[in-house]
Design a protein around this nucleic acid. Structure first.
Lengths: 109, 109
DNA sequence: GTATTATTTCGATATATGTCGAAATCTCAA
DNA sequence: TTGAGATTTCGACATATATCGAAATAATAC
């Protein structure tokens, strides 16, 4: 719940770049929808997607999805956590909030 | 002042792609700052930048700036209008508002 | 008209990106 | 410890992008 800020434009560029590929955006929006479904739950981790499930959703090979997930993760847009054999992917709410605020600030009062 | 909506993800991808290059983002943010300065004026056109001035701001060749401006324009992020010999560039407020709203909607209630 | 200024288009080039399949790595279960 | 499943890493390749300078175009001034 702490408020993270976007401090430099390089960070913004990286976030926009991460969301500028159609498949990567689809992956991200899939995770966002899972996150929304989960609005009553306690943990952010609930209703996260496994990497393999995301491959099926977007119909892209595991190696490519892995690459896209790394980009999203480096941009701070998602979190990845090992759960046994698999890896849980979920939205990083802080970055989404920071990005949303950045764009709100762009607007004229 | 009318409220434009972002209807498909292809549109979102295009907007993010337009903002995913460092120089293109700098050009856009330069126009945004001009737009902010102008908050008391009547016309959106006031305090717009000419193409040549943008070239100086970002220290990139005219041909490259022209290319970036076309991308920003195609994404709907800026408006370009001929003013005599030169061309006036300014923020397209509707798209910025729509993008801002899109990102606000991504957030969990 | 011709010259000047502003911008775009064109062609070239270097670099970055998206994609896949194969091989490697990691985790768990038997 | 060996095997199976999940994911990543590693080439390889095709396509896209960023960039420039030169040439073309557009608008104005003379």
């Amino acid at each position: 719940m702490s408020k993270s800020q976007i401090t430099n434009t390089g960070q913004v560029t990286e976030i926009f770049k991460a969301l500028s590929n159609p498949n990567r955006l689809r992956i991200f929006l899939t995770l966002v929808s899972a996150w929304h479904m989960n609005s009553g739950c306690i943990s952010d981790q609930e209703l996260a997607y496994y990497v393999g499930d995301l491959c099926e959703c977007v119909e892209v090979s595991p190696s490519t999805v892995s690459h896209h997930l790394r980009e999203l993760s480096h941009a701070g847009l998602i979190k990845m956590e090992r759960c046994g054999q698999r890896i849980c992917c979920s939205v990083n709410s802080e970055t989404v909030a920071a990005l949303s605020e950045f764009l709100t600030c762009l607007q004229r009062k």
